[in-house]
Design a protein around this nucleic acid. Structure first.
Lengths: 149, 149
DNA sequence: TGCCTTGGGTTCCCTTTTGGAACTTACTGG
DNA sequence: CCAGTAAGTTCCAAAAGGGAACCCAAGGCA
C-alpha cells in the first residue's frame, strides 16, 4: 500500500490521514488556528523548508481545508485561511494537545488554557456522549459499522 | 527544523506529533484499537511494508504507547498491546473518524457506530466543556498559555 | 536610474524515508 | 526430511525531506 492510495480506503481514519497525516501538515494547521495566514509567517514559525511548506499548503488547499486568497493586488500577495472543513479539525488538535500535555509533559511550560472568546470563561474540553452527557471512557466503547436495513 | 527535533518543542501538538505524526503510525494504532495485536495481523491489515511496520512498532514501544510482550516461549512469539498512554489516544482517533466521515464521505460504506461495550447503547462522541456541559464550537474558543502567578 | 528590500515561491542537490521483495530464525506438524 | 508459520531483517530502487540559492514583481529611496 502506498500513502497516496489512502484516500480511497473505506476507513474514515485512513481518508482523514490521507489529508492531514503527512509530516508537518497538522503543525501547519496548528499555526493556522493560531491565526497565522501568510507564507512567511508560517515558514518562520515552523522552521520547515520553503518547498515542503509550499507543498503542504497546496495539498491543504486542494483538499479544501485551506483557502488561498489574494489580499493585495500590486504586488500580488496571498494568504491562507481555514475553511469550515479546516475549522472542523479543531477537535483533532485539541485531543492532541491534551494527550501531549498529559503524556509528554514539560514542567517548564504551562499547559494551554482554553477560554470562551467572548465571556473569557475557562473551557475544559472533554469527549462526552451527546445522548447521556457522560464522559467517554475508551475502554467502554466499541466502534463498528452497521448496515442500515 | 528536522522531524526528530519535534520532541523538544514546547508545543504539545508538536510533541504529540513527534510520536504519532509519522506516516502510518495512527493507522497502526487504529488497528490496535480494533483489537489487532500481532505483527502478521497488522501487516495484513495495513498493507504496508514489513520494515516500516517494524519501525513504527519499535517507535511506539519506545514512546510507551504500545507494549511488546511475549505470548509464546517456543517458538518465541510477541504481540503488541496498547498501554494506558496508548489508550488515551482514543479521542484523537474518534475526532479523526468523525472528521473523515463528515468531510471525506463515502456513500458506499456506512459510518461507524459507537456503542457502550456493556449496555450496547449508542454513543455519540462530541467535544464538550466539562464545566458547563455545553458542546464546543471551535470558533468561540481561544487557546493560550497562562503563567500561574 | 540603479540598487535594496519584501513576499511568495521554485530549483538544485544531497540525505532520509518508503516501497517491494527476498532472506533469516526458531519452532511445529506430518 | 520437508512444508508452514510468526516475526522480523536485509537489500535495492524510488520518493520525500532538508538546506541553500535563485527568481519575480513591486515598492522605497538616494
Amino acid at each position: 500500500m502506498r500513502w497516496n492510495e489512502l484516500q480511497n480506503e473505506t476507513c474514515p481514519v485512513a481518508r482523514g490521514l490521507s489529508v492531514v497525516g503527512d509530516r508537518w501538515t497538522l503543525l501547519v494547521l496548528r499555526d493556522c488556528f493560531r491565526g497565522l495566514r501568510r507564507f512567511e509567517e508560517l515558514h518562520e514559525s515552523l522552521g520547515i523548508t520553503r518547498h515542503v511548506l509550499s507543498d503542504r499548503l497546496k495539498g491543504l488547499e486542494a483538499a479544501g481545508v485551506l483557502e488561498r486568497r489574494q489580499y493585495s493586488d500590486a504586488p500580488p500577495r496571498h494568504e491562507y485561511r481555514l475553511t469550515d472543513k479546516g475549522r472542523d479539525l479543531y477537535p483533532v488538535l485539541i485531543a492532541l494537545i491534551r494527550w501531549g500535555e498529559t503524556h509528554q509533559p514539560r514542567a517548564d511550560v504551562p499547559d494551554f488554557t482554553f477560554r470562551d472568546r467572548h465571556t473569557g470563561a475557562v473551557i475544559e474540553p472533554v469527549l462526552t456522549d451527546r445522548r447521556t452527557g457522560r464522559e467517554i471512557d475508551p475502554r467502554q466503547v466499541s466502534a463498528s459499522r452497521e448496515d442500515t436495513g
